[in-house]
Structure formats: C-alpha cells, structure tokens
C-alpha cells in the first residue's frame, strides 16, 4: 500500500529529501528573509528620499539627473546590476577598501553566538537589490505625492506652516496612505528578487534548492519545497502588511 512512499514513481527520482536537506532549505529561507529585510529597510529609506526629491525638484539641473538615475536603475535588468556591482565595484573602489570589505571579522558577539561580517557577495547583493528597490519605491512615493490635492499644500502654507512642515505633517501622511499598496507590492517583488543573487553565490533559498537538486538529483522535491516556502513567505508578508480592507471587499 505505502510502497510508493518508499519507492516514489520513477519521474520523482529514487527517494525523498532527508531532514538534513530540509534544514539546509530552511537555512536558505532565513537567508532570504534577512536579506529581504535589510534590502527593504534601505530601499524604503532611499526610496522615500528619491521620491520626495523627484517630486520637489523644480530646477532643471537637479530634476534631470534625478530622473536619469531613477529611469536608469528601473530599466536595467536586476541581474545585470547584480553582476555589475559584484564584478565591477572592484574597479571603482580603491584596493584598500576592497581589502577591508573582504576581511572576515566578527560584527557582534553574544555569548557563544557571533554575527560574522557579511561576505562580499552578500554585500554586493544587498547593495544592488537596495538600489533596485529604491527606484521602484521612489516611483510609488512620487505617485502618492502627486495624488495629494494641491489645495492641501496651499491651505497648510496659508495657515503659516513652513514648506518642510507641510511636507512632514500634512502631505506625506496622505501620500503614504495612497502609496502603501504599491509599496507593499515592491516589498513582495524584493522578496522574490533575492533569488537572483544565487548567480553570484549568495546562499539563499533558490541557491540551496539548486544545490540540493545537484546533490540528490531529486529535482521535483527540492524545487517543490523551495516553491512552497516562497509562497508561504509571500502570503505571510502580504497578510501582515496589507492595508485594512474596506467593506466592499467582503466580510472577511
């Protein structure tokens, strides 16, 4: 009866993943989550800055370079950007900096547990993904700012607030509310985008899946497990962060 459990059909390969493989996969999931978290933090910060700057910049000498930077990052494949920073940054930075970046050391020591300095490929991945996320979040923020009626600016200015106060207390809170759903979409894309960093050897979830596939030849099992973990992570983040639904969406 349960023979297929011991001997799965031929196209599934000759066995199942062992606990060790599942653990390696979960380790990859942790890597993916932490990298995403770091990228989302940086991307949100820089994205807000770029979005506000693009919205506020009137002078052509400032507006034009910002637009070029923004469109440049958005219209180049992420993989090319990852490779660019990974291989190319060595040619940009002085040798002493590269040495410093590549030196292994302990970042944080908590009893027996030590947080090591991230590897160079992890740094490059973080930087490339952050820039990419920045460009998309900036676009979302800018649209949100554009959606705030100009009367809000004028009224706030007329009541004696300074320019930055209007932005901080009147316009940004409203813009953020409009921008939040697309920003959340950018976060979810960031999560999926971390998979590209396997190309430079970051040991995240996709990398592990492929490694385990190569080791065990259980292609279906390893990719299925990785896919399920991705979907769970996406659904979890979506549930946690989605805006409060209005009544129109049903009684859920």
């Amino acid at each position: 009866m349960t023979d297929w459990l011991v001997h799965p059909p031929r196209w599934l390969g000759n066995g199942w993943l062992t606990l060790r493989h599942v653990e390696a996969m979960l380790d990859g999931l942790l890597y993916t989550s932490l990298l995403s978290l770091a990228v989302i933090a940086t991307g949100t910060l820089l994205g807000c800055a770029l979005g506000i700057a693009r919205h506020q910049a009137r002078a052509r000498w400032l507006a034009w370079p910002l637009a070029a930077l923004h469109n440049g990052v958005r219209n180049v494949p992420l993989l090319v950007q990852v490779l660019f920073w990974y291989f190319g940054i060595g040619a940009l930075l002085p040798e002493s900096w590269m040495l410093w970046l590549n030196t292994p050391r302990v970042l944080l020591q908590l009893g027996d547990w030590a947080l090591p300095w991230p590897s160079f490929e992890l740094l490059a991945a973080w930087w490339a993904l952050s820039l990419y996320a920045t460009a998309f979040i900036a676009g979302d923020i800018r649209s949100g700012l554009n959606a705030v009626p100009p009367g809000q600016w004028e009224a706030a200015r007329a009541s004696g607030m300074r320019q930055w106060q209007v932005l901080r207390y009147v316009v940004l809170p409203q813009a953020w509310r409009t921008a939040w759903p697309p920003v959340l979409g950018s976060y979810l894309n960031t999560l999926k985008n971390t998979s590209l960093t396997m190309a430079i050897g970051v040991m995240e979830l996709s990398y592990r899946a492929r490694q385990i596939d190569a080791e065990t030849l259980l292609t279906f099992q390893s990719f299925a497990l990785a896919s399920v973990l991705y979907v769970l992570l996406i659904v979890l983040v979506q549930r946690l962060l989605r805006p409060r639904q209005r009544a129109a969406w049903g009684a859920a």
Partner: peptide
C-alpha cells in the same frame, strides 16, 4: 504564478 520567483 505571481508568488513564485521567475527564476524558480
């Protein structure tokens, strides 16, 4: 399809 990375 939208929840899985394109690469996978």
């Amino acid at each position: 399809l939208r929840a899985i990375p394109v690469l996978l």
